[in-house]
Simulated assay, not measured.
Amino acid sequence: MSMEEVATKDTVAAAELRQLIERIERLEEEKTTLQDDIKEVMAEAKGRGYDTKAIRTIIRLRKKDPSERQEEEAMIDLYKAALGME
């Protein structure tokens, strides 16, 4: 491989790396904006009297597969029963 080919590959790799980094930076900016939007909606929910901790739990549960969610809920019920919490 000639020095010219190595230099060209280095230049192409550097340009590709720069593009990847810039894409990640743009996505990080978008993520920050979305996180701020979510905070605003949660603040609105709290202002209307909703329990934001419960809302976050519901959102987490809705992301799960129904069978996984049922298994988790059954395990929690079992543990609560074992501890005399029911």
Rank of each mutant, 00 (worst) to 15 (best):
M1I: 02
S2T: 14
S2N: 13
E4Y: 04
E5P: 01
T8Q: 10
T8D: 15
T8C: 06
A14S: 15
A15V: 05
A15E: 13
E16F: 13
R18L: 10
R18C: 08
R18T: 15
R18Y: 04
Q19K: 06
R23K: 06
R23E: 14
I24P: 01
E25L: 05
R26E: 15
R26N: 08
L27Y: 12
E28G: 09
E28S: 11
E30M: 07
E30K: 03
T32D: 12
T33E: 11
L34V: 10
L34W: 05
E40W: 01
V41K: 14
V41T: 13
E44W: 05
A45H: 01
G47C: 05
D51T: 06
K53V: 10
I55K: 01
T57N: 13
T57L: 05
I58R: 02
I58C: 04
L61G: 03
R62F: 10
R62M: 14
D65Y: 05
S67Y: 09
S67C: 12
S67Q: 14
R69I: 07
E71M: 07
E72P: 00
E72L: 09
E72S: 03
E73R: 00
A74H: 04
A74T: 09
M75C: 00
I76Y: 09
L78N: 11
Y79C: 11
K80T: 08
A82T: 12
L83D: 12
M85L: 15
M85E: 11
M85H: 09
M85Y: 13
